[in-house]
Simulated assay, not measured.
Amino acid sequence: MTPAARVQAAIELLDAIIEAAQSKGAPADRLIAAYFKQRRYAGSKDRRAVRELVYRAVRLCGEVPASGREAMLALAQEDAQLAALFDGSRHGPAPIGADEQPATAGLAPQWLSERLAASGIDARVGAALLERAPLDLRVNALKARREALALPEPAEPLLAPHALRLEAAANVEAWPEYRAGFIEIQDHGSQWMCEAVAAEAGETIVDLCAGAGGKTLALAAATGNDAEIIAADTDKRRLGNLAPRAERAGARIAQTLLLDPGREMEALRPWEAKADRVLVDAPCSGSGTWRRNPESRWRLTPAMLGRLAALQDHVLDIGAQLVRPGGTLVFVTCSLLDSEGPQRIDAFLARHPGWRATAPDMPVGRPRGKGLRLTPYHDGTDGFFVAILRSS
């Protein structure tokens, strides 16, 4: 592909990504993979260059662009070499018209930027939210020790006890160490969320929104497989990924429960008021993960955030039914919006007199409301909010 043809390919992909964001279609990475699957002539350098152009444009545009061309024009506005490739050549984009307007640069759509600002997200933190994320690993303590593990590429030890960081992209899932279960891909901040649970051997622990089980596996490792861990979720597809992951990791999960939305306690009744610790890693907007999925900020609407807040209240109330007297309920969201963090804790305490909330004692994060917030700018992690709730 010529450089101009790469620009045109990026424009076509951006058109598809914009349409999918508006219709809640496939994510950008899946669209990019499908695009090149149909274009076998594109070499690895072409694919890498086009992908880079696409994500640069997505990160730059705050409002949802009207078209892929407008998004690429915004990028060309600050890159003269890129602008020169709008030359009308074969397979390249048409020359830039005198009256053409580029898409608007910014952090996010205006309404969402305003909510982030109201949540204390300043320009520095906002900019860090749109940088490229490093690749973090968790060394599986059931099978390996961080200080003794040799990997195919250099990795930097991080502050979390089992965390390593690769600065460059790597096909980790092809490594023998991954296939043997020595390592898992897990953001440094996500590892700290598991540390916040403070799981101990001999306890009964419910991972209420387990998903594919990344945190479930970390809890099993933290307790040396000496805890009764129940992994529950309403998503059959994601929960189905846990069993093979647990087998590879050598992790013992006592029970995996598929929950019926709205009737969750029917399956969870055996653990009512019996769990020592309940982790609620609640469904959320994912605003703390924009480094990895920058187009997801185009998918949010005020109505969606309202529904997510209601769902977070719902799963917190379920978690409260499972915790034994004196037990611990850990609330986590990968969001930097107060409506998905401090405000949910305040609402919970208003509904549940006799409970109290505190921030976990960790060497990362900053106080926010009655919990703790981690950000890419301050902590080099994805964005998270976490709070500890205890019953009397």
Rank of each mutant, 00 (worst) to 15 (best):
E200S: 01
E200M: 07
G202P: 11
E203D: 14
E203H: 13
V206A: 10
V206S: 09
V206Y: 06
D207S: 14
L208M: 12
C209S: 11
A210C: 15
A210G: 14
A210P: 13
A210Q: 15
G211E: 09
A212E: 05
A212N: 02
G213A: 06
K215Q: 04
K215I: 05
T216C: 12
L217R: 00
L217M: 08
L217I: 07
A218P: 04
A218E: 03
L219E: 00
A221G: 05
A222K: 01
T223H: 04
T223G: 06
T223L: 02
T223K: 02
G224P: 04
N225T: 04
N225R: 02
N225V: 05
D226V: 06
A227R: 02
I229M: 07
I230G: 00
A232P: 06
A232F: 05
A232S: 05
D233Q: 00
L239D: 03
N241I: 03
N241R: 08
L242S: 06
L242K: 04
L242T: 08
L242W: 02
P244F: 06
P244T: 07
A246Q: 07
E247L: 11
R248T: 07
A249K: 03
A249V: 05
A249R: 06
A249Q: 09
G250M: 08
A251Y: 03
A251V: 01
A251G: 01
R252W: 03
R252V: 05
R252P: 04
I253D: 03
A254K: 00
A254C: 02
A254V: 01
A254T: 02
A254Q: 02
A254D: 02
Q255G: 03
T256N: 07
T256A: 06
L257G: 06
L258N: 08
L259R: 04
L259P: 05
P261D: 11
P261W: 12
P261C: 10
P261R: 13
G262C: 10
G262Q: 11
R263V: 04
R263Y: 08
E264T: 10
M265P: 11
M265Q: 13
M265C: 07
E266Y: 14
E266L: 15
A267P: 09
A267I: 04
A267C: 12
R269H: 14
R269D: 14
R269E: 15
R269G: 14
P270N: 02
P270A: 02
P270T: 08
W271Q: 10
E272T: 12
E272N: 14
A273T: 01
A275I: 12
A275P: 13
D276C: 15
D276G: 13
D276A: 11
D276S: 14
R277K: 15
V278H: 09
V280D: 01
V280L: 01
D281K: 00
P283H: 14
P283N: 14
C284D: 10
C284P: 05
C284E: 05
S285P: 05
S285Y: 09
G286K: 09
S287Y: 07
S287L: 14
T289N: 08
T289G: 10
T289E: 10
W290F: 14
W290Y: 13
W290Q: 10
W290S: 09
W290K: 06
R291Y: 15
R291G: 13
R291M: 15
R292Y: 15
N293Y: 08
N293T: 13
N293P: 09
P294W: 13
P294L: 12
E295V: 09
S296K: 15
S296W: 12
R297D: 10
